[in-house]
Nucleic acid binder design. Sequence first.
DNA 1: CTGTTAGCGCGTTCAG
DNA 2: CTGAACGCGCTAACAG
Lengths: 364, 364
Amino acid sequence: MTTIGDVAKAAGVSVATVSRALRGVDRVSPRTRDRVLAAATELHYVASPAATSLVSGRTRGIGVITPYFNRWFFATVVTGIEKALRDEGHHVLLCDLESHTFDARLPITQNMLWKRVDGVIILNVPPDPQERDLLDRLGLPVVTVGNRQPGWPSVRIDDRAAMAMAVEYVVGLGHREIAYAGTVPASVSHLQTPFDRREAFDEVLARHGIPNRPEWTLRCDWTADGAAEHADRLFAAAERPTCVVAASDEMAFGVISAARRRGLQVPGDVSVIGIDDHVHSRIHDLTTVRQDVEAQGRHAGSLMLSALHGHDVSSTHDEVLGVELVVRGSTAPPSRSRANRTDRPTRARTAPRSGALGAVQAPA
Amino acid sequence: MTTIGDVAKAAGVSVATVSRALRGVDRVSPRTRDRVLAAATELHYVASPAATSLVSGRTRGIGVITPYFNRWFFATVVTGIEKALRDEGHHVLLCDLESHTFDARLPITQNMLWKRVDGVIILNVPPDPQERDLLDRLGLPVVTVGNRQPGWPSVRIDDRAAMAMAVEYVVGLGHREIAYAGTVPASVSHLQTPFDRREAFDEVLARHGIPNRPEWTLRCDWTADGAAEHADRLFAAAERPTCVVAASDEMAFGVISAARRRGLQVPGDVSVIGIDDHVHSRIHDLTTVRQDVEAQGRHAGSLMLSALHGHDVSSTHDEVLGVELVVRGSTAPPSRSRANRTDRPTRARTAPRSGALGAVQAPA
DNA sequence: CTGTTAGCGCGTTCAG
DNA sequence: CTGAACGCGCTAACAG
């Protein structure tokens, strides 16, 4: 392993000069600098991060804490973070919380991140008091993505506005019998996004005087399969809605799938709308509210870099990225001919009627 | 920032004793050990990784190099790796190659990984000679996932066997007019998986004496959208296949979507099969060849840990995980009534015939 | 402009 | 069983 000493010897200078020349700080005569650079290249020299960080106190590593990064949203955010950090020579240390309980989380977080990173970016999961304590004690800059935490800068979309946009759109189409997919089980009830979106849904319905039926609320785990399962029960019931609003695109995929299996046409028999503009939303022909997920990651990364540069990233900084309605074929005005709406759908009934068949329209 | 000295002072012992007590090596009297532990806990002491690795030469970090980890397969592998590593206190350093060319990659890889990790796990992307050189010089243990590289242990599935399993299945159903989605553009022609799967496809067709039509080969970027686009052209052509074999589930999703938009029934008009058992495959009711992706990551992580423990993970180690056919509703025997098969499909033709309607079958 | 030197915090000899 | 001292590789003063 070549050290700074080897380079110094090869270039015939002192280690301090090598350090200066390589980092481009201070004044070094062009001639010596070139000699040092040549020697360093020749010997494939790279400074030891351990030694550097021991003396400088900085590691050039950023911890990224995610629940399930094995999901589109989180993986995409991390991609954005990584891009932003890489430009300045920082790298990502992954900390996947996955199924861990709060108790199990603390030692993980502690051992993985303590003194090992210059800052922490937390995706969507609110820290429990002990973790909060740890982070505060470490004095590390923290940036959150997807939810707001007091004292920390954040990057996110306005979940309420996004949901309101979706609901207003389908209400505008004439829907009055609207179901909701995306309430979460108690175990994750601390998450902000599911809460905000649900609340916005309730508000918009209330504002329009539209009934909000409990039996039309699908409580699930925010996966496509989970939503499909619950939606199947919804569509099997005597009375079914003309529209399902899903709090995420993946759940919307599940709802569409369940509808099809029941022989229901989307949007002919039931309209479906989501939030995200997931990478698969186009093939599902899903109307949705687009958010730029990678951009949220990039912004979080930049925010972190600014903090690292000593700029005051005020703790009140709250960057809210815009969203945008993307209309595709999964939504349409409610069908007029719903005389036998309460019938259990049968195979015979699955023959598509022409018109209003978003699912079979030519690609945009 | 509390150091080992602070703990020593608080416990009334020397730093050496603290180090020994905390790491549980050597003999330390139970009484002093407890005193040290108490002091360490009290002071929230955690050893500085930088100092530790400076003296020990080990970082407890593993670099994971991935193309596009923003995709299901890679994110899932990384999840598996992270789980395996975490159990032994190691962590993951992410290095997303994404769209970078080989030239741009080298400095990235070098700066991010050099002396910063104890080992490297490479997912699916073969290193170019310079990178290979770098890795060899560093003398770091390397494990590859998804493709075999001479001199390095690997974890993967048998891509040829997986594809053969898929093709044999649809051939067994009676299909003779079979298209293929998943040839890649020249820019990524060095990837092994696309090549192996294609080759296995060709072989099985040849063995059965089934014509392999060039115009039924969809060259695309292995995304759902890309596959949908190409498949649309396929389905618009005068002659269309009775079955499409996709080299990945995501492409299969795209093919199914394209078929539906053209008014074709899956599997009534065209059967579709994929490889992966992607998290969304169930809602697409897709017949596929399942691979356990997270297990591949876990195995790679374990392999790396063994290597780190000094066990000889022979460079000839090649762990091949099994795959399994999962039959769902996207495949069926080819339709008999194909008199007007060469007709361009029309809306009128989209009315589903009863029977063989996998897409609308009740969930399994 | 360049060299010398003193730590950064810890693991690891070696003596006790 | 425990403590003192050395050095890992580097940067940051301070001299020259």
